[in-house]
Design a protein around this nucleic acid. Structure first.
Lengths: 123, 123
DNA sequence: GCTTGACCTGGAGCGCGCTCCAGGTGTCAG
DNA sequence: CTGACACCTGGAGCGCGCTCCAGGTCAAGC
């Protein structure tokens, strides 16, 4: 169980220092350990959790939904069923998002091809 | 060359009335035709352009980049090379976005599977 | 002990992309 | 002609997700 400074945690998680503090403030990150002097000390467990948060953020989950997830996680094992349900719903949303993205990416490629042919015709 | 009311244009494009007006205001949508009384009349050409805007928005292009694209489009055929370059750069960004999304979707599925096994073990 | 740089807090501010509002005008069916 | 409803303008406001700031404290190397 290693200990990490705030800046190292920032580097490893990809969240800025301000964002880490913000996440703690809004309850996304619960009660990080402190030195006697009050500076934060992050654990491997915190880093793991941050990794999950990053995954959720990158897949577009809004903050308030992540807060609900965090809240469930704090209530212990009894909430696992609820958590898995939340994640499944999110996974479905992500699937739709990917489908839309791919469809629009196709249109984008079509448009590029069209412009390229215009370009060729003009030269 | 059909004509469309604002509300019909909204319905067809998926942009709200306010958004259509906003887009015109910031130059994303240039000089929409008007009735003698001053109400907007959208053309097939406008709808086509809105379709492109939708494609760009759905793939995450920021507004200011779309404005630059619109500006190029207004300058005529000479800007086609610049436009295609802009679109190609964007397409690359979209590819990265899709790759990240798929990677994180994988992690999400892993997490769900992990929770499910926890759930099974507890029952 | 002193310096330096990382870190602390509470709170204000920001950039984005709309969205809403008030107060007025246009259009069209009956 | 009238009523009802769609639409107009300029400008303010909002929700999100951070980000920045001032003014101070802590920790570690010399």
């Amino acid at each position: 169980m290693s200990a990490y400074t705030p800046s190292e945690t920032s580097r490893r998680s990809g969240f800025s220092l301000d964002t880490l503090r913000y996440y703690e403030r809004i309850g996304l990150l619960s009660e990080v350990d402190r030195t006697p002097g009050g500076q934060r000390v992050f654990s491997d467990h915190d880093l793991g959790w941050l990794g999950l948060l990053r995954c959720l953020r990158d897949t577009g989950m809004p903050i308030n939904q992540m807060c609900r997830f965090a809240e469930l996680a704090r209530t212990g094992d009894d909430s696992i069923a609820d958590r898995v349900e939340l994640l499944r719903a999110h996974a479905e949303a992500v699937e739709e998002q990917m489908a839309l993205l791919e469809r629009q990416y196709g249109h984008l490629r079509d448009k590029i091809r069209y412009y390229e042919s215009e370009l060729a015709a003009r030269s």
